[in-house]
């Protein structure tokens, strides 16, 4: 049975493997270059002050990570959509469309076993692909994480290309495509719907992670350089007055225009506003919530996808044409 699954879907498997390999090669070259550069140019001490050495190093590292990072930024949208459309949608739709289900279902293998080989075999391959993506991105990011340059996996630029989130997206999209295939029984409509739902899910969840838990708050009454700890996920910052009433910065600026002046960039201005009873609030998720958030997003995707997949499997196993 696994032979049949492989023979029917080897094109998808090979293309995905090649694309992952190409991406791996690009990241390897880029990452190795960055590691070399960092080894030679990283300032010995942390850059507290903005020295030219420091800023030159930071700018160069930023430039190097940006060039490939922009490419990676498309992956959370494109990769699941492609997996859903090319792995999932044709899986059953093509059989129905070409009538080959009538051939395969009348061999000596039960429909249940045939379907299990397809779904488990390809589902495992898709999951491995997603994990492989994270597996090649992680060391690339690590190559950039040389102080004073800091790479934060919790950053929304990287959150969906590391950990288990890519695998969850890929597997959900695959199951979605399969389910669309059993619903429409034709490849093209199934692909179109899969692409549309993947895009909707991507944009729907784009800013969702910051709401996966109640953020921690830091209320500043004195001037601090950086209220949120390293590698945490920034959520929001705003001003409150003594009574705890939330202010936008415009409202605060208007209220303080007389006493503190208008140059908000200075520390003096900040001190002045603190002395008038205003407090700055910063909301963030600490770095140790990374895995919690990864699993939350995986659950948000996989629970509905697997429920849909269950319905699709039941539909397919029910003996009707």
């Amino acid at each position: 049975m696994l032979w049949l699954t492989w023979r029917q879907h080897r094109m998808q498997v090979l293309v995905t493997t090649v694309l992952l390999a190409v991406l791996g090669a690009v990241l390897l070259i880029n990452g190795a270059g960055a590691a070399d550069f960092a080894a030679q140019n990283a300032p010995a001490t942390d850059c507290v002050a903005d020295t030219p050495v420091c800023s030159a190093y930071l700018v160069e590292m930023n430039e190097r990570i940006r060039s490939v990072g922009e490419l990676l930024g498309w992956l959370p949208l494109l990769a699941p959509a492609m997996i859903g459309a090319f792995w999932g949608a044709p899986l059953l739709a093509r059989e129905f469309e070409q009538g080959t289900h009538q051939l395969t279902w009348t061999q000596s293998v039960t429909r249940r076993r045939w379907l299990a080989a397809k779904i488990v075999g390809l589902g495992a391959a898709v999951t491995l692909g997603g994990l492989a993506l994270a597996g090649i991105v992680e060391p690339w990011l690590a190559a950039f994480d040389v102080p004073p340059y800091n790479v934060d996996r919790f950053d929304m630029r990287w959150f969906r290309v590391v950990g288990i989130v890519p695998a969850a997206w890929w597997l959900s999209a695959f199951v979605l495509g399969m389910a669309a295939g059993t619903l429409f029984r034709r490849t093209l409509p199934a692909m179109a719907v899969t692409l549309a739902v993947c895009a909707l899910a991507f944009f729907g969840l784009l800013r969702a992670p910051s709401s996966y838990a109640t953020p921690e708050r830091v209320v500043q009454a004195t001037v601090m350089d950086d209220p949120e700890p390293d590698d945490s996920l920034y959520v929001d910052s705003y001003w409150i007055d003594r009574g705890g009433v939330k202010f936008t910065s415009q409202e605060r600026a208007l209220a303080l225009a007389g006493s503190c002046g208008t140059d908000e960039t200075t520390k003096k201005y900040a001190k002045c506003s603190f002395s008038h009873g205003y407090r700055q609030v910063t909301e963030f998720h600490p770095a140790d919530r990374f895995w919690q958030f990864q699993w939350t997003e995986a659950g948000i995707l996989l629970i509905p996808a697997l429920a849909l997949g269950g319905v699709a499997v039941r539909r397919t196993l029910r003996p009707r044409i």
Partner: peptide, 17 residues
């Protein structure tokens, strides 16, 4: 849908898929 029952019958569908 039992393997033994399926093995006894062969089917050739109309479009010979």
């Amino acid at each position: 849908q039992r393997a033994a029952a399926l093995a006894r019958v062969a089917f050739l569908a109309q479009d010979k898929p």
